[in-house]
Design a binder for these strands. Sequence first.
RNA 1: GCCGGAGUAGCUCAGACGGUUAGAGCGGGCGUUUCAUACGCGCUAGGUCGGGGGUUCGAUUCCCUCCUCCGGCACCA
Length: 663
Amino acid sequence: MSRFYVTTPIYYVNDVPHLGTSYTTVAADALRRVHVLRGDDTRMLTGTDEHGLKIEREAQARGVSPAAFVKDMSDRFEATWPKLEVRADDFIRTTQPRHEERVQELWRTIEKKGDLYLGSYEDWYCVGCEEFKTEKDLVQPGNLCPLHQKPVERLKEETYFFRLEKYQQALLDHYEKHPEFIQPEARRNEVVSFVKAGLRDLSVSRTSFTWGIPVPGNPKHVMYVWFDALTNYWSAVQSPDELRRYWSSDGVVHLVGKDIVRFHAVYWPAFLMSAGLPLPKTVYAHGFLTFGGQKMSKSLRNAVDPIGIARAFGGVCGGDDAGADVLRYHLLRAIAFGQDGDFDLAGMVERYNADLGKNLGNLLARTHGLCVKMTEGKVPDAPFDETVRAPIEAERLAALEHWKALAPHRALEATWAIAALANQYVDRAAPWAEDKKGNHERVRVILGTLLSILETLSRLIWPVLPKKSDEMRAQLGLAPLAPVANHDQLAPLPAPLTAGRPLAPASPLFPTIDADGAKALVEKLTPRVEPTPTPTSTPTPTSTSTSTSTPTSTSTSITYDQFSAVDLRVGIVKTCERVPRKDKLLRLTVDLGEAEPRQIVAGLALSFQPDDLVGRRVVVVANLAPRDFGKGLVSHGMLLATGPSETLTLATVPDVEAGAKLK
RNA sequence: GCCGGAGUAGCUCAGACGGUUAGAGCGGGCGUUUCAUACGCGCUAGGUCGGGGGUUCGAUUCCCUCCUCCGGCACCA
């Protein structure tokens, strides 16, 4: 028996469960089910990440305590997953004592090892990211965080550092020795080159807020969110017995989104190495979803409700549970795990009709009907037809291999190949014709064989479509599957069937959705999202709560004198061209009413074609110190603009002559 | 710009250590059976395997180069 411990990321409670998090969680659950059905010692963990400055402020903005706020949000996650037929073995919250104690234990262990030291850190800090940004990360003008498009704050604080640099070589060695540690390969390459480029020690504590786990022996500090959060995978494994069973490096699989690979594949293993603990076997990064071809913006994420989708499909095929099955199937079948993919509603209906309804559902229905007519609605007493064994076994084994390789889409493809083989078999064997000829023994063989294949299919689909598996088995006169330790229930054909056992009355597993129904369904589920204005002007709960000045920051007000020292002038762009080898940069010459136009280099190239800018009026910071971009390319000033670098809007003042001063 | 990944039938993708007519699923078209949820089965897609060059008896598969897309890094006074 092998062991298998699969985790999802713990989800940050600032967000709600959406299609993306559902995808990860459903995938984890499907993997869990495969292993548990094979009799493996299996465990799945999900949970919520609840600390950090952002949460502290969010709670404050809503006038509730952080604890109450996170409880409420965490409950929403915990309540969502069962509705998608996810049966995690454990749900961890980073505010639970069991977690806090173990994180502190890990901290002490690493400290004892000498890998933590006290230093100080001053830099720009983005509340949204919970992260210091170096100057070069910021979007100008305005010192904006590139992700959140909000001004960062200047923070200086005492902080503990983790000696990450020390583990650079050990990490590289580990990647080398264990190619399966980071998957897919493209992500692995990225991480390797990131680490090769050099690691710096990592700041792992904060003094600027209190909503976090206190550092042992120095309660002025709370732990940096990633030290806290990553440790959940280990802290959830509580007893010595569980630790021995699940934290054993050969069975631990972390499923993560591709955006957080680095934390899981660099920081986390370094912490574990320092603490002398086993490393996980695999960090698997899946891709991102688009929805109907659209990028999942925050508003779209909120508007697309996975439970709503499940419910809508449940409406046509037998309840919310069944709808969850359909959603699970589509997520895992339509999107190549590890690659970005598109979630398309019309495609989902198509797949539902084709794969689920026609290939599988109809196979069950026709077999069932034949049995009612020809074997008195009972499982016939007849041997398995050996002629079909080999191709089906090949697909069954392929499916198992693909599950093992973390490729659910391929596993399902192979599973459905079995249904296709069975459909071919009925057609060729034509039991209805044999029946007419009076070959009743042959009919019994054919139908017994089909029932056996269907029984096997009911097992193979269980990890993804648990409710439909139950329903299918009920129609076959079988009990729902229940995992048994050390007992492989995805075993070879023929499936064990009791001759003479009656089948239950049947109704279509997946009633066909006709064109009108499909249209209505798609219409109903397509979210009405306001056409996204410029991202900076979409106020979210977070941005409203954090955009104002804050007591902990050392920023933002300046004196009038300081302001008047800034020489803002209107300029007219005379020439504009791309800067070779710099994707974001444009080189412009701007008329400021001076003798000669000025040369200004600006990061506008993602938003503007050079020609678009010629002749435009712009606002220029005229007395900024010149900046050298190398090779004699010097910028004498800066253009004012707003927005993310892909969709900048230039500040302008209409109908004013070049050189006019702004105040 | 650097480093990865990818560009193959309408769509989603397989595949090829170089070699008979380049594959699957879905959709489309044609045919056919009647047990079944008008379902299944069979046939069908005339695709320059992104462009160009090279190596070779022979390349879509190897090498070079260019283009496009996606990521990571850099650049953003």
